[in-house]
Design a protein around this nucleic acid. Structure first.
Lengths: 192, 192
DNA sequence: ACCTGAACACCGTTCAAGT
DNA sequence: ACCTGAACACCGTTCAAGT
């Protein structure tokens, strides 16, 4: 029916806008991408963007959601073997999205929309990291006696690791520096 | 002489501009501070700012230099006793400058001026942190046998710590979370 | 050398008007 | 409901003109 046709068109057009925004935000950065340039890339006029999104920050959040889903899917396909390799893989994934990471921090100061997305992202990320750490500890202690860090440490470590990952990406460490730091993190976890 | 008088006036006026910029950049953020508002706060017209600074990024660098000097001076006066307390004190100092920290990362992507300042800042910061770590290790091993981490670890740890500090500040950890994380860092250093 | 008023090209966003 | 052309208020920066 016409109702359905309209809904499909709207969804497709919205997706085209998000795709264009994702490419430009990642390639040129958020600030360097004007709504005018973005509209041109999506094949619409600038004000049409506001029919689909409240403002530029809401468009950023739509891009972030899409990129996170894509990154998680990529992580599912090739399961890294060791915890160190998982860490390294996360850094590599985030590397491509470096411009977005820095923008999220900057916009979180100004936009409640981006700030609440950022909060949820870290809450989910810390849980995900904690689960990976627990698996590592379990397989490490398999057969022997279980030796688990305190609850306080298990709360602090995912945070430390996420800051380390963001830091490595934001400061452009090369591959060998990343490997050294990721290995150090796991070694320090095992020494606790 | 008149030559000297002019030089003094120029320096004083430049300083007034930097002071106004420091207050507004720290309080409202870089993006939220327009050159017009900044000029008004400094008691000049907007275009006058460009007689003293090439552009807004150069003005930011002048503010950063001033704030770093002030922060170092504050650290000199009350020397923290333990390494954990020194770390915590650094986090507290940087907390006030949170808006600047995030701006430095954002502008480093767009402005070579800010990017090179950022590089120098981390080079100096890592050296400063490494020296503090070496003092800690020396006093810890005093009387016993010296037990020093590998050179690779001594290169990676200051980086990790600076990322942790930036992360704690950027993500607004409360005092108890900060204490837990700083204590963890030192504990993990000692366990190496 | 130093400072101004006025302008420039651009930005994110809005709105009256169309279909 | 959806989209447009034209406008709005603002931004960082420049420039001719004054002293």
């Amino acid at each position: 029916v016409a109702r359905n046709r309209a809904t499909v068109d709207r969804a497709a057009k919205r997706q085209a806008i998000v795709d264009a925004a994702a490419e430009l935000f990642v390639r040129d950065g958020y600030d360097a991408t004007s709504m005018t340039a973005l509209a041109r890339a999506a094949g619409v006029t600038p004000n049409t963007l506001y029919w689909y999104f409240d403002d530029k920050d809401h468009l950023l959040v739509a891009v972030l959601d899409q990129e996170v889903v894509a990154a998680l899917a990529a992580h599912q396909t090739n399961r890294a073997t060791t915890l160190t390799e998982q860490l390294l893989q996360t850094v590599d994934t985030l590397d491509r999205l470096n411009a977005l990471t820095i923008t999220v921090h900057a916009r979180s100061q100004l936009s409640p929309t981006v700030a609440s997305w950022h909060d949820r992202f870290h809450t989910a990320g810390d849980q995900w990291m904690l689960a990976a750490i627990r698996r590592h500890l379990a397989s490490r202690d398999a057969g022997g006696e279980a030796r688990v860090p305190s609850d306080a440490d298990l709360a602090a470590i995912p945070r430390l690791w996420s800051y380390a990952i963001e830091g490595m990406v934001a400061h452009g460490l090369d591959q060998s520096e990343r490997e050294a730091l990721c290995a150090l993190l796991v070694r320090q976890l095992d020494a606790l």
